[in-house]
Amino acid sequence: MIISSKTVKYLIHALLLVAGFIWIYPFIWMILASLKSNNEFILSTSPFPETFHWDNYTRAWVDAHFSGYFMNTVIMTLATVLIVVVLSALTGYALGRVNFPGRRAVIIFVVGVMFIPKGYTIIPLYQLVEQLGLTNSLFGVIIAEASGAHTLFILLFTSYFATMPKELEEAAIMDGCGFVRTFYRVMLPMAKPIVATTVIMQFIWTWSSFLIPTVLTISKPELRTLAVGMQNFVGTHSTDWSGMAAGATISLLPVIIVFILMQRYFIEGVAGAVKQ
């Protein structure tokens, strides 16, 4: 479609810019507020801090335990991403390259599972983790985060592996590679775009996950993640506004940076979701 008139075009640009500024202003506000003193935060109407109060970050990082929350979030996210990539790549490879008996049934099952009405699965998950004795480490949170059918990722891997030429696999076999070596030496490196999409999407989801870490760390404050720890901040340090803004910035900045650098893969993954 073509928008012809120049004035209309400029008008649209102006509108998109103003709306876009308001759109992300909460984040700009958060970063600016994280550098104000608490007095300034309450009294000043200027959006900019008079001087940069980096001590807000020290307070959030040390006193409000954001250093621990940050490490927990990093460990939880990386471990979950690794597990999910391995699981869905293996499954996708089997489904995309081998026509084993029952293959169609497995694909139907992978898709069909999205439509099973779920009850409140966090309760049994919580019970399960407790029975397995995993409530004392991040391991319980990680396996709960890595659960799920990963339907989207499996389908992305399946269709990607299925379109690779058969000659590639035959050449690998000629070179003496077995099934497993062919997979991780030849085929998996070729599937980098799908691996990237899976990594980025799962990274952003897990980083932001709230319900699972909330429930699984109910009695373990030292295992909390950023999203959960932030709520704690609101309760106990309720007068430290700029410290709170610093904590929020610590929590959001990594995921914003990852998104801006890798957005191509994320957006392709999202677009892939509707096409499937």
Partner: peptide, 9 residues
């Protein structure tokens, strides 16, 4: 941008 940011924050 808002899509990727942590809802709880």
């Amino acid at each position: 941008l808002p899509v990727v940011t942590t809802t709880a924050i």
